[in-house]
Design a protein around this nucleic acid. Structure first.
Lengths: 213, 213
DNA sequence: CCCGATCAGTACCGTACGGTACGGTTCGCA
DNA sequence: TGCGAACCGTACCGTACGGTACTGATCGGG
């Protein structure tokens, strides 16, 4: 087994070296926005040659796609074990989910990648947008769906359309915070309100879809 | 009175000619994204010279700011006359508000300007983001706030924190649709669901904050 | 000990954009 | 009629980026 073959690890077909390069690229993107994400800049920051970048990723778009895939592969969410739920534990799980969701959306890398994909939505036929949606959102969406389904099976929640219920939960949690952060609102101060916000949102959601009362 | 002096009209310090130029610039932005928003392209589309663009707007950023201000000045929302509200008319007003909000957010120009501001959020210290927030969002926010306040005064709604109530209303209406559209999801098919979505959101909101039952 | 592959570093090319300068034209005004 | 301001169209300049080509160094395998 050669060294070249023992490197496949990141869930994609990526070398360790390539992963490190993508890491530097993400760093550049977070710090300086899309303008800073230049091939020469990445090569300089990652101590590699432009030629290698093009050999590995094809072109700039391929590199960006690889960045999204790489980041998504790092934040796989583990599903909660579907153990017995009572009203209190369901609420606790929902609050944890809400906090996690807000934390993820407020993360540096998430914001930077979303900004990048949104900025390119007009030119590339929303290829990056679909990718981000598929590999990022779907994960956390499935976690929520599992939670909601478990709640319904336990007789704690009642809804016909799971997507509708999830939409309400998402909206109550996030409201317009995500957009405000994407537009540049300082996320630092907002993070302190996440806990309270999560609890309020879950309380409202349970009022709408809970069977308790 | 010279012709040059009768032109101040658009609520800004803008000439008719300058307004027409900004119109063309918005058209370019909507059709081709930020990449298509080039000084040469605007000059060509508007039949004016680049020199005039720089004379009127300073530089590219100034032109973009002027575009935002110009668009905002066109979509001033008229407040509903604060007449007597009963439960049914409040619900009707809320549903109209919800539909309007969804229509505005799904509009070509709104999406394009939001994409532009988000794409530049990293480089310009979110100057455009604040401008968009201030001149666009605040308007519709005030309309909602007035509606909620009227509902409370009429004894139809109950809430302590108006911002919290508005956040819930906004989240229930918009959920993650805005982000999906910003990422490039085809808005055409979604618009058909706006009516139902608006009614559901308002029903949920009234369940949370209404005094009816 | 040598061969071939890989890769860093750099130089290079074409292009496109932001911004400026200039010649020619229109038009209001005295 | 003549002057001056505004302005269009275009040419021009510097720069920066995406992508390619070349050179030399490192390293694993035979």
């Amino acid at each position: 087994m050669t060294a070249a073959m023992r490197e496949a690890n990141a869930g994609e077909g990526l070398t360790e070296r390539q992963g490190a390069v993508l890491e530097q690229a993400l760093r550049l993107l977070v710090d300086g926005g899309e303008k800073a994400l230049t091939t020469a800049g990445i090569a300089r920051a990652a101590n590699c040659s432009k030629e290698s970048l093009y050999k590995w990723f094809g072109d700039r778009d391929g590199l960006i796609s690889a960045m999204i895939g790489f980041q998504a592969s790092k934040v796989r969410t583990q599903d909660v074990a579907a153990k017995a739920l009572d009203a209190e534990s369901l609420e606790r799980h929902l609050i944890v989910f809400a906090k996690d969701l807000l934390e993820v959306l407020a993360g540096d890398v998430s914001l930077a990648l979303n900004r990048l994909a949104i900025g390119q939505a007009s030119r590339d036929g929303s290829k990056l947008g679909h990718m981000l949606q598929e590999r990022g959102r779907r994960q956390i969406g499935r976690r929520a769906a599992a939670l909601l389904e478990a709640g319904r099976k336990a007789g704690l929640l009642t809804f016909d359309d799971a997507d509708e219920a999830y939409g309400a939960l998402y909206g109550l949690i996030v409201s317009d915070w995500h957009l405000k952060m994407l537009l540049g609102e300082e996320a630092g101060e907002m993070k302190k309100g996440f806990g309270r916000k999560a609890e309020q949102a879950v309380a409202a959601f349970l009022t709408l879809y809970g069977t308790k009362r």
